[in-house]
Amino acid sequence: MSAESAAILDITGEVCPMTLVRVRMALDEVGPGGVLRILMAAGEPVASIPRTLKDEGHELLAVERRGDAFSVTVRKRP
């Protein structure tokens, strides 16, 4: 699956801990090896969520800033 056809999750309106909870639920949906693009607010979400994904062995494909939000594309651990 390419990053273009990735499922998209928007958590720009969430705060901790729901940010991570929503990411976990979305990752359950995509299945192993699947790609998810997450839109998140700058600040605490982007400081902690990419890091948690990395620590848990998922592959970060791209991180881009879009104004006050970030787009983080992740491939779920196979």
């Binding site: 700058a42 600040g43 605490e44 400081a47 991180v63 970030f70």
Partner: peptide
């Protein structure tokens, strides 16, 4: 470094 600025937020 790609300049993504996650570190700036952290």
């Amino acid at each position: 470094c790609t300049g993504c600025s996650v570190c700036v937020e952290a």
